[in-house]
């Protein structure tokens, strides 16, 4: 593998021809060999940012993009040396698996024998060695994802960009491929940007996570930092569930105007000790039970409890909020 490079974006903004702002001016530095996850709801600008890095969109006047010391702002996508896995994979239907994986090498004029060797090596890496001659429409979703990945890394790209690489797959397969992908990225040691709207995916794959909203970077940091110390309610809510209670009983008991907390920070106890609440619904989820509760004034919140919790809908309980935080 080639030596990993840093990616630096300076003052990169994107305005569409009709004047809408897809991305506010943004500075971002991605370390060599680091995997950065761009996380946010659809329309937040994360895919636009990814397309700017690979050159399929240009930044507004004044924006600069560097790979290492190389300013690639004006370099066309075909010359940037980026490996891209597109959402939906965009595999070429007129070529078989080997044809897809070897396409970038063919373009580079690599001779047939070396190409075959390299394709075999790549397919081995993504554990698809036996499928080289398969047609694309004969592959499962998970296999397509691996072919797309093999095609992107076969050209020894300077950076690797993945746009929602696992979104098209069913939940179970996604879990497994997430682990495989994390391992592969570590093996490759390549600088990588992953776009996803799935917080679990972002936290598992990203060394750092950049949370985006409405064309802005909300917060950038290690997954743990973002979860424990969110810079805004948006970040807190996007990384897991965030509950908020305010006024009345909360003010009297906790002495604050409002409380924000996560569902696992609530302990449910027999009535008497904490905030009085009523169980509205109970969902048994195996490793834990999820309770939906309401206060006397109708405010709703969620609590997670151990799988042996005995409360049932209609019960009155008291909620002890462990890490009470001032909102």
């Amino acid at each position: 593998m080639t030596h990993p490079l840093t990616i630096r974006l300076d003052n990169c903004a994107k305005t569409w021809p009709d004047g809408t702002r897809a991305l506010a001016p943004l500075n971002l530095s991605i370390d060599a060999g680091e995997t950065l996850a761009l996380l946010g709801p659809s329309g937040c600008g994360k895919t636009t940012l990814l397309r700017m890095i690979c050159g399929l969109e240009s930044a507004d006047e004044g924006g600069r993009i560097r790979f290492g010391d190389d300013d690639v702002t004006q370099v066309a996508p075909e010359a940037r040396g980026v490996g891209v896995v597109f959402q939906g994979y965009a595999l070429f239907p007129n070529m078989n698996v080997a044809g897809n994986v070897g396409y970038g090498l063919k373009i580079r004029g690599v001779d047939a024998a070396s190409r075959r060797r390299r394709v075999a090596e790549m397919l081995e890496l993504v554990e698809l060695g036996a499928l080289a001659e398969r047609r694309i429409d004969q592959l499962s979703g998970g296999q397509r994802q691996r072919v797309a990945l093999a095609r992107a890394i076969a050209i020894e790209p300077r950076v690797l960009l993945l746009d929602e690489p696992l979104t098209a797959l069913d939940a179970r397969l996604r879990q497994q491929l997430r682990v495989d992908l994390a391992k592969l990225l570590k093996t490759l040691g390549i600088t990588c940007v992953i776009v996803t709207h799935d917080q679990e995916e972002a936290m598992m794959l990203g060394d750092r996570v950049a949370v985006m909203s409405a064309g802005r970077l909300e917060q950038l940091g290690a997954p743990e930092t973002l979860y424990r110390d969110p810079a805004s309610p948006f970040v807190a809510d996007f990384l897991g569930t965030l509950c908020r209670l305010e006024g009345g009983e909360v003010a009297t008991r906790h002495g604050v105007a409002a409380l924000t907390f996560r569902p696992h920070e609530v302990e449910l106890a027999p009535p008497g000790r904490g905030l009085p609440a009523r169980v509205q619904a109970r969902f048994f989820l195996g490793s834990h039970i999820r309770f939906e509760l309401t206060l006397a004034d109708g405010q709703r919140f969620t609590a997670l409890a151990a799988p042996d919790a005995i409360w049932q809908p209609g019960d009155t309980v008291s909620a002890l909020i462990e890490q009470a935080r001032v909102a």
């Binding site: 399929l56 996508p77 075909e78 010359a79 939906g88 070429f92 396409y103 050209i155």
Partner: peptide, 24 residues
């Protein structure tokens, strides 16, 4: 996306036309 994928893999407009568009 087929054309964009070919482009990021290094294909010139002519190669994209011949390798991807014409077969399609």
């Amino acid at each position: 996306h087929w054309l964009e994928a070919a482009q990021t893999l290094g294909a010139s407009p002519w190669r994209r036309f011949v390798d991807i568009e014409l077969p399609a």
